[in-house]
Simulated assay, not measured.
Amino acid sequence: MTSLQWIDAQLPGRPALGIDEISDLIGLVYDGPLLDIPWQSLLDALRHLLAANYVTLVLRPPSNTSPGLMITSSAVDTTVGTGAYAQHFYAIDPFVNLPNAQVLTVHELIGEARWLESEIYRFFNKPYDVLEIMGVDIRAEHGVECRLRICRPHGSDRFSEADKALCRRIVPHLERAVRIHANLNTTESERRFYAGTVDRLLIGSVILDDTGQVLTTNGMADALLAEKDGLVVCNGQLMADSAQENRKLQALVRQAIALRDSEQPGIPLGLSVPRKGDRARLGLLVRSIASQKWSERPRQPAVAVFIRDPDQKALGSAELLRNMFDFTRTEASLVLLLTQGRSLDEAAQELDIRRNTARAHLRAVFSKTGVTRQAALVQTVLHSIIPLD
């Protein structure tokens, strides 16, 4: 059998697929990782091509600790059925753990009699009008796994060799696309984690492209830029209010862009920007982002500008302080106020305790943290993981 003979196989009641149709189908496989609901278009196409009533892609199998992640194409709402399978029926499903990348039908795997007598068929599949099932399990590198299940109703034709050949054709492409999806998910999870960390530290971040135009900003930067006090975005460019400071800022950005292809990235470039009235100056750190050799994006991230507002205090969690240092509730509250710049008298007043009581709590805190001075205490707390809470 030649590599293209499968194209001539007839699907039930349908003409053979042409090269363009096959190309479109494989295209849907690789579009899958980019969709809001991954591979939904592919599942819809397979449902129509294979005269199925349900097509499901299991990206994370259910377990006793997780409902898993399943995407289904159907003409009806599958919320209840998916929930029932994830809660109970997955544990008694005999059509799982198939040989890797082999397309099989449920009749081939366990036999028709056993299938019709099975609990999952009688109490789950039959009520949802599912008799025929064709599937394939794909196990990729690093524990990545997915399962494709294609179902037909009672009274329909059994899956043919042509149907199986169609599925076999897309299996290697689906395996690659699932690996791409897993890598994208890992990268996105890491990005969100580090972005969240920067937000919790109350640091604004502005990413510029290689022309100095703003690409992205985080929430803290958005808040600072919305004030239009010290820094603004004008015509897509990050600018300082002061003409003198703006010249310095643009020079630092140009310098950072020039350094991005250097084998030894330059040290971060710093600048402080004045604001109106008696507000503290904004601190800026300008840093190069190494260019991506194989990136096809016309606008690549080139420079990161980090913004710190000294008036913003990173607030820690009293509960985390208690867990880390075995503080009492009052001790933790006192320490948090001291890290926010309060004096001991001001902290005592806010906590509605006497100064001598506050001093007694402070001595206990010193004993638990191993420091003897208030400044050292504040430094110990601020340099711990407390601001990341």
Score class of each variant (00 low, 15 high):
18 G>I: 01
355 R>V: 08
375 A>K: 09
347 A>Q: 09
355 R>L: 12
346 E>K: 11
45 A>W: 03
25 L>E: 04
369 T>P: 01
215 L>N: 10
192 R>G: 09
301 P>L: 08
252 L>S: 03
166 L>Y: 02
79 T>M: 10
71 I>E: 03
166 L>Q: 13
107 H>Q: 14
206 V>H: 12
74 S>F: 01
74 S>V: 02
62 P>L: 15
9 A>G: 06
253 V>E: 08
329 R>H: 03
299 R>E: 15
174 L>G: 03
177 A>F: 09
43 L>I: 04
158 R>C: 10
264 Q>I: 13
163 D>P: 13
298 P>V: 05
169 R>N: 14
185 N>I: 00
206 V>P: 05
221 A>Y: 09
25 L>G: 03
7 I>T: 10
94 P>I: 15
301 P>V: 08
97 N>V: 03
71 I>R: 00
335 V>T: 06
387 P>Q: 04
347 A>H: 05
45 A>P: 06
51 A>S: 12
176 R>D: 10
126 K>C: 15
338 L>Q: 08
135 G>V: 13
46 L>G: 12
353 I>M: 11
322 R>D: 00
115 W>P: 06
388 L>T: 05
235 N>I: 00
3 S>H: 04
136 V>A: 09
174 L>R: 09
13 G>A: 08
67 P>Y: 04
373 R>K: 11
381 V>T: 00
248 K>Y: 10
215 L>P: 06
370 G>N: 03
40 Q>F: 00
142 H>V: 13
3 S>G: 04
75 A>P: 06
244 Q>P: 01
25 L>H: 02
58 V>Y: 10
74 S>Y: 04
380 T>E: 02
187 T>A: 05
230 G>Q: 03
332 A>G: 07
40 Q>D: 08
302 A>V: 02
129 D>N: 15
388 L>W: 01
129 D>W: 06
130 V>P: 06
136 V>Y: 15
18 G>Y: 02
16 A>R: 07
346 E>L: 12
69 L>W: 06
100 N>K: 10
172 P>A: 09
230 G>Y: 04
34 L>H: 07
241 D>I: 02
125 N>M: 15
299 R>F: 06
289 I>K: 00
169 R>A: 15
57 L>K: 01
356 N>I: 07
2 T>C: 03
190 E>T: 07
133 I>M: 15
184 L>H: 03
206 V>Q: 04
95 F>S: 15
223 A>R: 04
9 A>K: 07
149 R>N: 14
107 H>F: 07
265 P>R: 00
90 Y>D: 13
118 S>R: 11
86 A>G: 11
16 A>D: 11
252 L>Q: 11
246 N>V: 06
316 G>C: 08
34 L>T: 13
319 E>R: 09
105 T>Y: 10
289 I>H: 04
208 L>M: 11
347 A>I: 10
355 R>Q: 13
289 I>W: 01
90 Y>E: 07
